[in-house]
Amino acid sequence: MSDRPRLALYVQHLLGIGHLRRAAALARAFVDAGAEVLVFSGGIPVPDIDFGAARLLQMPACLAADAAFSALLDAEGRVIDSAWKDSRRELLLKEMAAFQPDAIVIEMYPFGRRQFRFELLPLLYWAQNQGLLIVSSVRDILVDKGRDDRVLEAADLIRRYFDLVLVHGDPRLVPFERTFPRATAIADRLRYTGYVVEKPAAASATYDRNEGEVLVSAGGGAVGGPLFRAALAARGLSGLKDRVWRFVTGRNLPEEDFGYLKRASGVDSGIIVERFRSDFADLMARCHVSLSQGGYNTVMELLALRTPSVIVPFSEGQESEQALRAELLAERGALDVLPAEHLEPDTLAATLTRRAQIGALPIELDLDGGRHSAEITLAALAAKKAH
């Protein structure tokens, strides 16, 4: 057996792919810091996610039935039942015991992913009995569900089971208590890591944005249809209409929306439509201006690359996370934000043109969250073993 510390990372993405991408970046950072890492992924497999030298164990997959998370479906589109839950719980515990980790990092829980208590509570009980370091990994902003009982439950679970809470953010932008009112009750466990950002080669390259495209994207694309259609309508009204507009839709954009865009590109050579680009970071680094949804990963990469950006946050149902982060950054002049419910073509066209002229204004934030997460966790593990 290797002398390196062994770390298990649990992640469950349900709608977009942001959680999985952030987990992959963390896994690579832990490996770089000297750990042996096994990622337990419970969402639908996503091609081209880079886990580096970390190993990936794909559990029986499930996803959200819709943007409102009204139900959980298995890989065949069936609502998951108690037999499915029992089977996955047994597999998770079996594989976890076989790996024999020194530490477990659980993404989002107990601040989210409450639907997976059926396997996570038994996992926490097992890990505690094994004397493992138990870590929660959570983004800077939580979605406000308006449920004080859930906030109290999360704080209680942190105090009962967890040694650390890695908050992937910077309190200079938004302190954790802004969206988790019981933060003071778990303050001794909280550690701000800075934002977890991909480290693309493009970050060190120099491009002439004056020659660049208008880049339109929506993460995995599952809920990107309205944004893409609005961008297409805004193109002819924009001062940027003579530039190439590149739509990178994501693999999960519904076929109806993808077909609509492809038909437009068929009659206009200035429109390029693609599902996926492995060099997406390079596209962001050299584009004239970016239009995108406000996912954590995309926004932080845009900031790191100093890309002029207009953000249209996803805000269906009770989703508030993307909007709050984008608004806080807009207040500092780092980007522009347009609410999805007011996405009129003329307003969008004017905002894109204006942001392209202004450029990207720098903002002081810690964007080295992967490395800091690894350092904090492995230091805590060493201290736990020493006692």
Rank of each mutant, 00 (worst) to 15 (best):
1 M>E: 11
2 S>G: 14
16 G>N: 06
23 A>C: 15
24 A>R: 09
25 A>L: 15
34 G>D: 09
45 P>A: 01
47 P>T: 08
49 I>M: 10
57 L>F: 11
60 P>L: 02
65 A>T: 11
70 S>A: 06
84 W>S: 01
85 K>P: 08
89 R>S: 01
93 L>N: 02
105 V>L: 14
113 R>A: 05
114 R>E: 10
122 P>H: 00
125 Y>G: 06
130 Q>F: 06
145 K>V: 09
157 L>I: 10
159 R>Y: 10
162 F>D: 00
167 V>T: 02
168 H>W: 06
169 G>D: 04
176 F>K: 04
181 P>R: 01
183 A>H: 10
190 L>K: 07
194 G>M: 05
197 V>G: 03
197 V>F: 10
198 E>N: 13
200 P>G: 08
215 L>S: 00
215 L>R: 04
219 G>S: 04
221 G>V: 02
223 V>A: 10
233 A>S: 14
239 G>K: 09
242 D>H: 15
245 W>I: 05
254 P>R: 00
256 E>M: 06
258 F>Y: 15
259 G>D: 14
259 G>P: 09
264 A>F: 11
266 G>S: 11
271 I>P: 15
273 V>S: 11
276 F>W: 14
281 A>N: 12
282 D>L: 05
283 L>Q: 12
290 S>V: 02
293 Q>I: 06
298 T>V: 07
310 V>Y: 03
319 E>Y: 13
326 A>M: 02
330 A>K: 04
333 G>C: 07
333 G>T: 07
334 A>W: 01
336 D>N: 08
337 V>T: 11
339 P>K: 00
339 P>G: 03
346 D>H: 14
348 L>S: 02
351 T>N: 09
362 P>Q: 08
363 I>W: 07
364 E>D: 15
366 D>A: 10
367 L>C: 11
370 G>H: 10
377 T>N: 11
